[in-house]
Write a protein that binds this DNA or RNA. Structure first.
Length: 335
DNA sequence: AACCGCATCAACCGCTATCTG
DNA sequence: TCAGATAGCGGTTGATGCGGT
């Protein structure tokens, strides 16, 4: 299967788009919608529009990354940064997937922002930008080195906790402004139940303590080897079912909506590979708007809603962050 | 003023996935 | 079923701007 060139290399313009070209493309898309990108430049060159000397691929990119009306540009908010970091921890460099949860940002913009800002920031604080864990393993160092490692690790923890706390303050202030605003019609959405699995992932979340972190629960040793078991028939509330995440030693029960993409009927007595489960889970991640509502609603009690995988090695890392966030520290002693 | 190094980000390139006839 | 066409993705590049010397 041969791959045809995306465009005739001769006679088509490359490089930055001019305002005139943007105008041509916009005018055409607004009138006709883009249809086939490859055919677009030719169509845009009909009697109504001057010839657009760009290949379809370039047109599509310009539209999706710049001209689309629903694009949010400018500085990334703290919450957006948090979302990117957390989703990157889950998804890796799947920029388009990450972008779907920041509905007004393009994958290209997120990718650029990660590479130019977030990656450097995490690196500075000693966090591995691939694993999202502290880079240094204190146990593998000699005494002097282990102190450095510990310091870096603590800095990483503090930086994460500080970002969380700042994001929380922003959310709280938003919540207050909404509560006091007379014309607000925003209805707080129910928290997405599927987020509970992340608590389980982080090492256990005690539902019975109303959101308090239970440090006694053990971490799932190897999340990729863990399985999920459908607790057939254990319907907690209408439209809600219970699942258990287990690694053979440790079980954590959590509730999900029965509209969960996994067909529970097919696994009534069986188990689901976690990788498949996570695919389903990612589909269930809240959109940016939903996330906002949840954050607003839970402004004073969203302790430990951080997403991310954990294992034995970074148990303390997450514990510390959760504890710090729980204690609402807004002024970091480090920064 | 000129040069240099660095940061940023729009755009390109090459590949895979999906669609279509 | 297959091959070509098209869309979409992620990595990389290069133009540009800015601050420092």
């Amino acid at each position: 299967m041969g791959r045809s060139p995306c465009c005739e290399k001769v006679g088509l313009k490359k490089g930055s788009w001019t305002p005139e070209e943007d105008q041509k493309l916009l005018a055409y898309i607004q009138e006709h919608s883009h249809g086939s990108w490859r055919a677009l430049p030719a169509k845009a060159g009909d009697v109504h529009y001057p010839w657009l000397q760009r290949c379809g691929k370039s047109c599509r990119l310009r539209w999706t990354n710049y001209l689309r009306p629903d694009i949010k540009r400018g500085k990334f908010s703290l919450q957006e940064e948090q979302t990117i970091i957390q989703l990157h921890a889950l998804l890796g460099n799947r920029w388009s997937a990450i972008a779907t949860h920041l509905s007004k940002r393009t994958d290209n913009e997120i990718k650029n922002y990660w590479n130019t800002h977030l990656k450097k920031r995490l690196t500075k604080t000693g966090i591995d930008t691939v694993t999202h864990k502290p880079k240094t393993d204190a146990l593998s160092f000699t005494d002097g080195q282990s102190k450095t490692a510990a310091n870096l690790s603590h800095m990483a923890q503090w930086e994460t906790a500080r970002l969380e706390a700042e994001a929380r303050l922003v959310r709280e202030s938003k919540l207050r402004s909404i509560s006091f605003g007379s014309s607000s019609t925003i209805q707080p959405a129910a928290p997405p139940l599927c987020l509970d699995v992340l608590k389980a992932w982080q090492g256990g979340w005690s539902k019975s303590t109303k959101g308090g972190f239970n440090p006694d629960l053990e971490f799932v040793d190897n999340p990729t080897n863990a399985v999920l078991e459908y607790q057939g028939g254990m319907v907690k509330e209408e439209g809600e079912e219970e699942w258990k995440v287990t690694n053979g030693l440790q079980d954590v029960i959590f509730a999900v909506e029965s509209s969960w993409p996994l067909d529970s009927g097919k696994v009534e007595t069986g188990q689901v590979e976690v990788s498949n489960f996570m695919d389903g889970f990612l589909d269930q991640l809240p959109s940016n708007a939903d996330y906002q509502n949840v954050s607003e609603r839970d402004g004073d009690s969203n302790n430990g809603r951080e997403e991310g995988f954990s294992n034995e090695k970074n148990k303390n890392f997450w514990n510390n962050i959760l504890n710090m966030v729980n204690s609402s520290s807004s002024d970091s002693p480090v920064f």
